[in-house]
């Protein structure tokens, strides 16, 4: 028997496979097609202080080995998340969930986290300082160590739950930002968010996406994600949740070797709704194939 269990900031999870925020809703859509209790946990849809419709459509463009999205943080707002979404989730998921939070000011972030903090279902916070889709929003916090640290400190102040900061790859020095978050009290780093990208329609000669630019994700960005996780692993002592192009059990192992304690699956959920279940089912045999008895033992193994 191989051991897929992982300790993520004091909470043991059955396996390190976590659907990424924005690709799994609040879980219940997927619970209609399989028992999502097989997941390590999942990161719910990015939640903001106020309800948001998001960007105009089209919001999606296909790319070779990936996709671009510019959804723009559509969500019902923290009040409705607590009153409507979390009870629905509770009915189909009996493990702690990761609360993904976004904001447009330091006060927004602190307010939303404070509201969610009393919810017992929530095991961890994942604070998105990197969403590239909102004008003048999240992007600015994630591109400067000072601003990222300011958000981290403000959120740290209102919760004792494990706090991950989700970083943008659209920066010159992600290591400096990760270190700033660690110093400001983060318990972990989530990385990487999507990379800024664009597609252009040859017939209309205009960007495909109404917002012009969007976040590029999918297997194409995996090498960038691996490189950044590898670099940050050498610079911080807190755990990393690695993501970017994860689609198979082999990808999970590769990301953990780079330095990730757990792994998120994003775009792959959208093309294969059973992706996470299948990755979890495949993990033990792939671990055996590569001589791995205990997943924890391989974290950072490539260093």
């Amino acid at each position: 028997m191989v051991n897929t269990k992982i300790n993520l900031c004091g909470i043991e999870i059955d396996n390190p496979v976590i659907p990424a925020s924005g690709t799994f809703g609040f879980g219940y859509e997927f619970a209609e097609i399989y028992d999502i209790n097989c997941l390590g946990t999942f990161s719910f849809k990015g939640t903001t202080k106020d309800p948001r419709f998001g960007n105009p459509t089209p919001r999606i463009a296909e790319c070779d080995s990936g996709m671009i999205n510019a959804v723009g943080l559509q969500n019902p707002g923290v009040e409705k998340v607590i009153s409507d979404e979390l009870p629905k989730l509770k009915a189909c998921f009996n493990k702690p969930v990761m609360a993904n939070v976004s904001g447009f000011s330091v006060e927004d972030y602190a307010y939303t986290v404070e509201q969610l903090d009393s919810q017992d279902q929530i095991g961890w916070f994942e604070v998105n300082v990197s969403c590239p889709n909102v004008h003048g929003g999240g992007m600015s916090f994630g591109t400067s160590p000072e601003a990222a640290a300011e958000v981290t400190a403000a959120v740290r102040n209102v919760t004792d739950k494990p706090l991950f900061i989700k970083l943008s790859p659209n920066v010159t020095d992600i290591v400096a930002i990760a270190k700033a978050c660690e110093a400001a009290g983060a318990d972990g780093i989530s990385m990487i968010n999507t990379m800024l990208g664009m597609r252009i329609d040859l017939k209309t000669r205009r960007p495909v996406i109404a917002n012009k630019m969007g976040g590029f994700s999918g297997p194409a960005i995996k090498p960038v994600a691996l490189r950044m996780v590898y670099q940050v692993y050498e610079a911080v002592k807190i755990p990393i949740i690695g993501m970017g192009g994860i689609a198979t059990a082999k990808d999970v192992i590769e990301m953990m070797l780079a330095g990730a304690t757990a792994v998120q699956v994003g775009a792959q959920n959208l093309v294969d709704p059973f992706a996470c279940r299948d990755i979890i089912n495949d993990l033990p045999s792939v671990m055996k194939k590569y001589g791995i008895d205990d997943l924890t033992s391989i974290i950072g193994g490539a260093h």
Binding site: T23, E29, F53, T57, R59, I60, L270, V271, P273
Partner: peptide, 27 residues
């Protein structure tokens, strides 16, 4: 019709506003 990501309600790629609130064209 709308450009979709997943087609089953997960990604919010094809949302629209209606008099009864936001809806996903796919779901």
């Amino acid at each position: 019709e709308e450009r979709m990501g997943c087609g089953f309600g997960a990604c919010m790629g094809c949302s629209c506003k209606t008099k009864y609130g936001n809806k996903r064209i796919c779901k």
